[in-house]
Design a protein around this nucleic acid. Structure first.
Length: 401
RNA sequence: GGGAGGGUUCCCGAGCGGCCAAAGGGAACAGACUGUAAAUCUGUCGUCUCCGACUUCGGUGGUUCGAAUCCACCCCCUCCCA
């Protein structure tokens, strides 16, 4: 069987590796227990987490044992990595709620069957730590001088860093040590922004128990301009269907930039590499087929095949104006066009709707609406439904209740 | 604890008594061009009963005909000294 590190490299997951050759050998000869941590800072996982979950899934398929660590304890401290300001503190209740949400979502991607994988919460060992004991035991192993040179604190050293957050690194390091002791976990994987935190843990294990530990970071999903992917007008792209509808989720991937398609396919689907190469070899409108495939595959993994099938049908109907199968929104007795736009959720306020119409972005049944005082004519109200277009990407069937 | 500088609309960031719903950039949405792409150009981007009105510039109270702009107190942040 292929070494999983090769698989991950080919697909473009791997960014940095500690003791690369040794780790490669280890992964090639035995089942390795590894972990990736997720801080429950929201009530749903998002696209950024998804990349690492996929990497975990690949590793699990290669026979290794993943531990999904949910940072119920570390979330109480807040990770300063990549942040320009302090995170707002979350209450224990919120964190607890988020932990539950994460657990539910993760089981869709990772098989948590007996002995195959585990899900643990670092609150189990962090909440009850004794300050003095912890300082003597773990704090003594860290050099402030060294910590200050870490990349993850650089930005914050210019803008301010609280002692609370400064301790995050120790917490994460301690997690790795704890997992190493409890489950013989020898590898930590995670987003590249976690590099210094991961090294801290590997170092701590070496110093405390004299064993080798490894770290591996994954590339973050970025746009061609290097910005983090997964943000839209409505905020992050969530994996929770309630927060980002499967339709919107699908459309997000359907609309990625051309030169991101191959990357996304490699990182977010299980598609074979040669198939990906084939599909993305074009530089013209044939890319659209690849994008549709990407969107379908990702949606199927996140929301299930049935949902992906349904959404694909809806999307196709929507763009080919096949009224019977288009996404439909029911609204109660709309008066004018502004009312329709707001009630259907396409505009946040009347003013926004008005401006959109003035800008020429709205059509009803193929007729562009130019007057915001426009009201539904008799032939539409008697029929009880019509097609609403917002821009060229939103096509809805509106049914009047 | 002492001294200095700050908190502005989604983000960055101007403004420093009226001409401010507040420059500029980014993000976003829409229009043109296209391939439901990128780049480019254009428009919009607080709310409303929209040629007018209303609510915003950390909080609370003042001064003033009039405050994001001045004063007082409070909260938060940064830097220097201890």
């Amino acid at each position: 069987m292929k070494n999983v590190l090769d698989v991950l490299r080919e697909r473009g997951y791997v960014k940095q590796v500690v003791f690369e050759d040794e780790l490669y050998e280890l992964l090639g000869k035995e089942s390795v227990t590894f972990y990736t941590g997720y801080d429950p800072t929201a009530d749903s996982l998002h696209v950024g987490h998804f990349v690492t979950l996929m990497a975990m899934a690949h590793m699990q398929r290669a026979g290794h044992r993943p531990i999904a660590l949910i940072g119920g304890g570390t979330a109480m401290v807040g990770d300063p990595s990549g942040r320009t300001d302090m995170r707002s503190m979350m209450t224990k209740e919120t964190i607890l709620h988020n932990v539950e949400c994460f657990k539910k979502q993760m089981s869709r991607f990772i098989d948590f069957g007996e002995g195959k994988a585990m899900i643990v919460n670092n609150a189990d060992w962090l909440y009850d730590l004794n300050y003095i004991d912890f300082l003597r035991d773990v704090g003594a192993c860290f050099s402030v001088n060294q910590m200050l040179t870490a990349e993850c604190f650089k930005q914050r050293l210019e803008r301010g860093l609280s002692f609370l957050e400064f301790n995050y690194m120790l917490m994460q390091g301690y997690d790795f040590l704890e997992l190493n002791k409890r489950y013989n976990c020898v590898l930590q994987a995670g987003g590249d922004d976690q590099w210094s935190n991961m090294l801290a843990g590997a170092d701590l294990i070496r110093r405390k128990v004299g064993k080798k530990a490894y770290a591996l970071t994954f590339s973050l999903l970025t746009t061609s301009e290097g910005k983090k992917m997964g943000k839209t007008a409505k905020g992050a792209v969530w994996l929770d269907a309630e927060k980002t509808s499967p339709f919107d989720f699908f459309q997000y991937w359907r609309n990625v930039e051309d030169d991101r398609v191959a990357t996304c396919m490699k990182l977010l689907t299980f598609m074979e590499l040669d198939e990906i190469a084939e599909l993305t070899a074009y530089k013209d409108e044939r890319m659209n087929a690849a994008k549709e495939r990407l969107a379908y595959e990702v949606t199927a993994i996140v929301h299930g095949k049935d949902t992906a099938d349904r959404v694909l049908k809806e999307v196709k109907a929507s763009f080919s104006l096949d009224v019977d199968n288009m996404p439909t929104v029911e609204i109660a007795s709309p008066i004018g066009i502004i009312d329709v736009l707001v009630k259907s959720g396409q505009c946040k306020s009347n003013g926004e709707a008005r401006r959109l119409i003035e800008g020429g972005g709205v059509s009803v049944n193929e007729t562009k609406i130019t007057d915001y005082a426009w009201t539904l004519p008799e032939e539409i109200t008697s029929k009880g439904e019509f097609v609403l277009h917002k821009g060229k990407k939103v096509h809805l069937r509106i049914v009047i209740k």
